[in-house]
Amino acid sequence: MTEPTMVTSNSIQNRRITESRKLLDIDKAFAFYIHGLKDQNEDLLKLPKHNQWIEADSKGKIILTEDRLNAINEISLPEHPNYYTLTQRWLGTITEITQDGFNAKLEDLNAGGTNEYAEFFSTEVSKDDKPLVSIGAVFYWSLGYANDKGSVKKESIIRFQRLPQWSSEDIDSAVDKARAQSKALKWL
């Protein structure tokens, strides 16, 4: 191995990592430098106290240095390769639970206007979304043509709406609003 280059944030920024437009394998890209850094005088690895060593995920360690953090900041990774060329979207509300799934009223999110109704099957609902199926539950349904790394496929996606649970502050706020309104409103 040749003598590793002294690593500074400048030198990383000067490397045009995104020119090839390939997904960046961070470990691979920086392995050389990390190895190089480790071989350097320990003084060079002095980190400000607020930085932390973090294991980012179970698939591999990402060891951070201040320089590398700055470098990652500067790197703009390519966007998702998946996109849709033509999509029709609906907002569904379950109106009835059936033996095989549910019936729903659908609002056209593309063009608005009149509503539609359709039948959906339990087999179309992901395991994680199944607990969300109930009368009145809201979901997104889309039908479209997806480009997935070059090949086009027709896709139907059902995804239940996930909004935050009410907090006690939300409920308190509703109680306060109701009280204020009760004082302000007059009744005959």
Binding site: L106, T114, N115, E116, Y117, A118, E119, L143, K154, S156
Partner: peptide, 10 residues
Amino acid sequence: DARPSLQELR
């Protein structure tokens, strides 16, 4: 193909 039951509420 995907949803033959879809009907408009006119």
